[in-house]
Amino acid sequence: MITQEQISLYIQNIPATPSVIRQTLDHVRNGDLIKAAKCAEEDPALKLYLRTLINRPIYGFRNEVSSLSQIFGILGTSSAQQILYNYLMSLLVPKEWGLFSLTHQAFFDLQASFSRKWEMILKHLNLLTHENESAITLLPASIIVCDALFGAHKKEVEQLRSVKALDYNTILQRLSGQSLFDLCSVIAEKWEMPSSIAHTVHAASGTDGNIGEEVKTLAKWMHLLLFYELSRSPFVEAGLNELIDFKIEFVQDIYESFTQVVGYDETNG
């Protein structure tokens, strides 16, 4: 169904980080937001992405914010880096989703929701750093990769799943020896993301042994956040609930704190 050659071909076709984005990211990492804004001006698509994003209701601005230097100023270095990675991810989003019943809007909403809640979590854990904050941006790559690899095999997967409750990540791993999280790491490497981001996201699969305490903590919260989001109606209907295997035992001890941090109302519905 999915061979190693197909995976290699897919990875080969992932575009490298555009030079404008790379330079903008460098300026952001150095804390020079003015230079970052100037650099971003050169990429009209990025400019439009940032303007659309900052003027969404979640940011609460009454008047339209259009200047990039203003936008970078509002975001600050941490959020700017995170949003640039989100933009990079948006370049990978397929024109048409093949496996999942997703729209672009729903995917971007998911990205935004991940980012917002992840920030709340990091603040709660007292682990808010640039890199930790950006780690969440890599997680949706698993969805994009999954859709790209399984999109042409939807029926076969349905038949397989009709006899065994296998998630896409497990199927991929058993077929090719590589998991969605391995492929996220490859993307992170290709985009020259800090290695800690790839480690955290990989550990969020809930299957990594031998990881440090901090990474383990982040991984648990990310794993539960993933399932919190993938349990929401639009994403269940999109078929995302079957993306990976939910490891309850991995996250059981943080459940109570998690629901408080994200403000989950247990009387829902």
Binding site: A165, Y228, S231, V236, F246, N268
Partner: peptide, 17 residues
Amino acid sequence: AIFQPQGFLDGNNAPSF
């Protein structure tokens, strides 16, 4: 036949599962 939902289950999302 067994349905196998994952994650959180409440009145809002159950009709989607």
